[in-house]
Every structure is written in C-alpha cells, then in structure tokens.
Design a binder for these strands. Structure first.
Ligand code: MN
Ligand code: MN
Ligand code: ZN
Ligand code: ZN
Lengths: 137, 137
DNA sequence: CTGATCTTTGCAATTGAGTTGCATTACAAA
DNA sequence: TTTGTAATGCAACTCAATTGCAAAGATCAG
C-alpha cells in the first residue's frame, strides 16, 4: 500500500484510481490549484468527477479551500497532521493579481481574535493580495 | 449639499441620484451587501447600473470588497478616513454560514505579516467563518 | 460464480454571478 | 440651444459551479 493510499484511507476516503492520481498530482505540484487546473492536467477525465473529487477531499479534511480575489475556488492539500481546526490550522495565503497564482504560507498563522459577543468561529480564510516574486521584478 | 453628496465628491464620484440612493442605503443599513441585495432593494433600477455603481465606488475607494466563503462578492462602506491601505485599513470580517450574512469588524485589524522574500502585499481579505449571534442560539 | 446493492464516474443540462457591447437618456459645458 | 460627455438601460454572453440521471465499477451475501 502506497503512502498516498494510506493517506486517503486515514481520512476515510475510498482510494480509487482517479482519487489516487489527483492526490499524487496535488502532492507533487505542492501548489494551490483550482478545478480548471485539474481539467488541464486530466484531459481524459470528466469535469464532474474532478469536481466531486475535490468536494470529497474537502469534506474529509484532506484539502482546505481558499477564496482569493480571483473569485475562483482554490484548493490545497492539508499538512499531514492538519485537523482543519480554527485557529490553529488556519494560515495565511497569498494571491498574485498578476499571474493569478495562489500560495500557501503554512508558517504564517492567524491571531486568536477576540470576537464580539456570541460570534462563534469555526474556520477562517486569510488571503493577502499583491505581487509574487516572479511578477515583482 | 448633503453629507452623502459631499462624501461622493470627496472621492471624485459624480453624485447622481442613483448613486446617492445607493450610498444612503449602504450607510443606513450599516451592513455588508451584495449586488443581489441592491437588486432586491432597488427593483426599479437595472442590474447593470447597480453593478457599475458598486464598481465605481470600489475604484474610488468608497467601499471595500469582501470575498467570503459564499463565493458571492460583498461590499461595505469604508470608514470616513479610510484610504484602503495595507495593512492599516484592512480588518477582519465574519461570515455566518447559517444566515449567510457578512459582518465588518473594523476594530479587529490584521498583523503586519513578515512575508517571504519578494512577496509584495497590496491588499488583504480576512474572513472568519462561523455562526453569528442570531444563529448561535 | 451469480445476482443484488452501493459507489463512483461520465454525460448532459442548468443555474446564477459577473461582465460586456451598444443604444438611449441625462447632464453639463460651451 | 447646441454639442459633447457621462450615466443608465437593455440584451446578450461568459464561465464557474452544480445537479439529475444513466452507465460502469466495486463489494458482498448467498
Ligand atoms: Mn494553505
Ligand atoms: Mn469591512
Ligand atoms: Zn505572480
Ligand atoms: Zn447568522
């Protein structure tokens, strides 16, 4: 059994061939991706399958979702020990308005905000927009 | 000349009747709104006009834009002295997954993050998702 | 192995937010 | 008033996201 197969099973996701390939792709690119990115990579697979795979991964806490200024939903693999809990597992992301890439900054956590009375947090989305190294020169 | 008329002119926005009405609505509701919210309020006006009004307001720094987990673009009036600069004028927002309302927390600023080399920030979008007071009971 | 059952995948169609082109109207300067 | 510019309205379009249903594949009891 491969490391990726174990990873899926540890999150109670049936390790189908399709899911294995998508997980492998996300693991080796190490970047934040969108559904369209998967479509470009897996031209043989159907858009719906890719969509539902991401949805399954999300629901089982294998990936986290990022809403950046592009309006397109992005996804990134969670770290091995991530439980997607707030605020500990929530971190900063960066969206480059020039190349439209999004980056994970897992080392940049978020403050434990003191919210107004009776606001109960469960998750967070923190995105800084600007210019990435490739586009800043 | 009304206070709202002055406010538009101070941001170099021609104070048309439509814009005045929209600004007034946003000021008195004091909440974060979407294009659809404007459509519901101003049933006589055209969707495009409302859309372009928000766009104009945004471009002239009268409102700021919020990307929450709903995937729908939200807008909120800037404070009087806001220049929409990062990180000083960027603050936390709260999205209630239950009633799908979004709230401004202007008193909750964001840290001045130390980004990786050559990442140049220009703006930020910080949204905490959870349950609001009305939906927490 | 066989048939029943559940899950996954593929295909087609739909929704809805966002956006654009162009004609018309309102406004403001000359 | 005339003329130019800006704002508005109407219609159409783009595209990400989503859903229903059928086909294919996996799982399990007998
Ligand atoms: Mn991340
Ligand atoms: Mn705000
Ligand atoms: Zn870039
Ligand atoms: Zn609520």
């Amino acid at each position: 059994m491969t490391i990726h197969e174990k990873r899926l099973q540890s999150r109670d996701i049936q390790p189908t061939a399709m899911r294995m390939r998508i997980l492998l792709f996300m693991a080796e690119t190490k970047s934040v991706i969108s559904l369209s990115d998967l479509e470009e990579k897996f031209t043989h697979a159907d858009r719906t399958t890719l969509y539902r795979t991401l949805k399954t991964f999300l629901e089982h806490g294998l990936v986290h979702q990022i809403n950046d200024a592009s309006g397109i939903t992005k996804y990134a693999l969670c770290s091995e020990n991530c439980t997607c809990s707030y605020p500990d597992d929530v971190h900063v992301h960066f969206y480059c308005f020039s190349c439209e890439q999004t980056f994970c900054f897992p080392h940049l956590g978020i403050p434990n905000y003191d919210l107004p009375e009776n606001f109960t947090p469960s998750n967070g989305n923190f995105v800084i927009t600007g210019s990435c190294p490739s586009c800043s020169s």
